[in-house]
């Protein structure tokens, strides 16, 4: 634990209900830490508070109980040492791709020559060189997503927070992006917290998978994934040890889903 970059310590969160209803307890004592250079995936049922946890790590929301620590210091106020990749790419529609990717450097007061070099390198790294002058509306969904990732990688944040970054992509693009992310994060030695619904994605990408329970949620399991790298994201089942790792996560996760009513449509997929 001494090497922890990001620590969630007994996080509790209650949201007031609209009107006079009883407040919603969302997080109920979340404890886990993310080590330097570690890739941690967080999975949990919809609405269990995964996005809420990332908001706290970014300093955009103060937990009602407990604290998030970044390199030992309690986060109070916007945390500029992290990078945030949201589910939708959220590029600035009024800026060209190059201007989008350049913005964090501009905001941090980095000079024009260095900015130009780093924008060039960042766009090459995600395979978008040649599209500098395009506006986001002129790019495909996958390209926008790459842009969004480049915009985060470019300032080399201490921790990268990703909230279901590939959720909205088609299956092929998604696998390509997963492969790229694996390569980029290994090259950069980045520390990543990665939220996903997809167990395969979690297992194939992460060093550890944190499984959250239904609301009010707690950490149900914290599973280390010791598959050798680089991993094959295109045919995950070919990675030696994948099945066992998948089972370890699924056996904990299955207890949390498929429970809510609406009987006839719920079917348990075979692992």
């Amino acid at each position: 634990m001494t090497d922890a970059v990001l620590t969630f310590a007994d996080i509790r969160q209650t949201f007031p209900a609209p009107g006079d209803g009883a407040p919603t307890r969302v997080l109920d004592g979340i404890d886990f830490a993310v080590g330097r250079g570690e890739f941690v995936a967080v999975i949990g049922p919809s609405g269990c508070g995964k996005s809420t946890l990332l908001q706290m790590a970014a300093g955009l929301l103060a937990p009602t109980g407990g604290e998030v620590r970044h390199r030992g210091r309690r986060i109070a106020g916007v945390n500029r040492a992290v990078g945030f990749v949201p589910q939708q790419a959220k590029l600035f529609p009024w800026k060209t791709l190059a201007e989008n990717v350049e913005l964090p450097l501009l905001l941090r007061g980095i000079g024009p020559a260095e900015r130009r070099d780093r924008v060039g390198a960042a766009l090459r790294a995600v395979g978008l060189d040649g599209f500098e002058g395009h506006y986001p509306g002129q790019l495909s969904g996958g390209m926008q997503k790459r842009g969004s990732i480049a915009r985060t990688l470019i300032y080399e944040p201490d921790v990268i927070l990703m909230d279901e970054p590939f959720g909205a992509l088609d299956a092929q693009t998604r696998m390509v992006m997963q492969d790229d992310l694996q390569a980029l994060s290994r090259a950069a030695g980045a520390t990543i917290v990665f939220i996903t619904h997809d167990i395969t994605e979690a297992v194939v990408l992460a060093d550890r998978v944190v499984v959250l329970s239904q609301r009010p949620s707690r950490v149900l399991a914290d599973v280390a994934i010791d598959l050798p790298r680089p991993r094959d994201v295109f045919e995950p089942f070919r990675n030696p040890g994948f099945d066992a790792a998948y089972d370890a996560v699924w056996s904990r996760f299955r207890t949390q889903i498929g429970l809510p009513s609406r009987g006839p449509r719920v079917r348990e997929p075979a692992p």
Binding site: L60, R80, G83, K90, L103, L107, R108, Y155
Partner: peptide, 15 residues
């Protein structure tokens, strides 16, 4: 204005 874009920009380091 998209709240999420505002938050993102703050995290990126904007005053």
């Amino acid at each position: 204005v998209d709240r999420e874009i505002v938050d993102l920009t703050l995290v990126m380091g904007a005053n």
